[in-house]
Amino acid sequence: MKNNNQLEELIVAGFGGQGVLSLGMTLAYAGMLENKEISWMPSYGPEMRGGTANCITIISANKISSPIISLFDSAIVLNQPSMDKFAPRVKPGGILLYESSNIFKPSTRTDIEIIGIPATTEALQMKNAKVMNMIILGAYLQLRPVVSNESILEALQKVLPEKYHHLLPINRQALERGESMVLALKGQLVN
């Protein structure tokens, strides 16, 4: 892995309600639990009120300088406008992970790794549309293991109010589902 896991600069973007901000926040929380430096910068402006949201999440072994960046090691995009906006801003050699049941025109760049998984369809099969973001997070962590799954689960326990703790098992399943979807895709590529 690039940078020996020292620094990961990630953007997560999509529609409001897709769990964009909470995906980034869960990741940041897990980073904190692993004693890493973290920053989470949400969009809070007119674009958010107009229905799209994004957050820049940085996880680093060292103190983080700017929480605002324009180029990313990885991008997670959950709708077409975010694909169009952020695909060009992934650094060469970086990762672009997208939700393929919402996005029909992925980037055609060849200098980055582009992976699409139908997380929304999968979440509906799991009978809980809200875990879509955790399927995506599981897929992302399979590609970029910046924090451990255990830390994510611990983070969820702290981030989710206690009345939602009965949903922890399905979140765990969603994470694992995302992981295995990526593994399956990679297997296909090898074959």
């Binding site: 973290i38 809070y44 929480p67």
Partner: peptide, 10 residues
């Protein structure tokens, strides 16, 4: 400023 107010860090 708005960014330091809205961002999360530890």
């Amino acid at each position: 400023d708005g960014a330091i107010g809205q961002m999360m860090e530890k």
